[in-house]
Amino acid sequence: MSELSQSRTAVAAPRRSSGLFGIDLASPKHANKLGYLLLAPAALLILAILVYPMLLAIDISFHDVKFATLSFGASEYTLANYQKLFSSPDFWNAIRVTGQLLLVVTTISMAVGMGTALLVNQQFRGRSFARMLIALPWAIPEVVAVVTWVWILDASFGVLNWILIKIGLVGGPVSWFSSPGTAFSAVTMVMVWKGYPFISIMILAGLQSIPEEYYQAAKVDGANVFQRFFWVTIPCIAPVLGVTLILTVLWVFRDFSIIYVLTGGGPVGATETLAIMTYEEAFNFFRMGYASSIGVVTLIICAVISAFLVKKTSHAIY
């Protein structure tokens, strides 16, 4: 070891570089400056492409503009858009449709997601392959999924009608997109199909994080399979369920592509959610101010719902 010390002068001390503007950002004194520097590009970008547009949208919603303007306060401030909105039957219809869809889609996809997660959480050969297959619809782009379902639901040659007739559930072919009830069912089907894989993946991750000892302890205490599910599984995955529920609700609330490509909101507004209505008002009728006011209301409802769910579910953990 003594020979180690002979060569110690051989390695030069690192350069005494002075970094940016003569400030050595490596010095402990300046560490936080580097933190700001690293955050700056993202902060500026977000300011430009998220904050500014958002404020603009809120501003537009208080103006009577037909086309999006870029200057704040271009014309007189007015509450006309909101007054019109709250007295419009279309708006209340959209609220009702969105609410119904939220309830139905969330409930069914949570059930399917939970069921599939429990299924592939079992131990069996080929489990990882099964897990991959079960959540595969996640990897199908929404537009692709919708187009595929339109073909499956086709009134004349759709395979679903053939199956339903074959097993005697319906007398003749169903024209899915021409009546409000069936159109709503079609939207529900596609949304559940696109929505359950996410829930399944999340719940499965939650299930896997439960220590096996909990189940062994419950067995020792004499709990049967249902008791173990309700007293071990559910409480353990409650936080995961909470997060999943919030994200699913937000998705259903704001999703555009599925409904727009599938039904366009029709027939007669049966599937027109707030998101569809916003888009239609903005880009079909070019009532940008009015559309923005719907967007603002959507944003507020989203915020309220998530705040409520966060409160509820974080409560459920304890």
């Binding site: 492409i49 998220l50 999006a68 903005a282 940008m288 967007g295 959507t298 989203c302």
Partner: peptide, 15 residues
């Protein structure tokens, strides 16, 4: 993440 894309798209369109 809570911003509805259908709302954000209006000012972006103008910009």
């Amino acid at each position: 993440k809570m911003l509805p894309a259908t709302m954000l798209i209006i000012p972006l369109f103008g910009i």
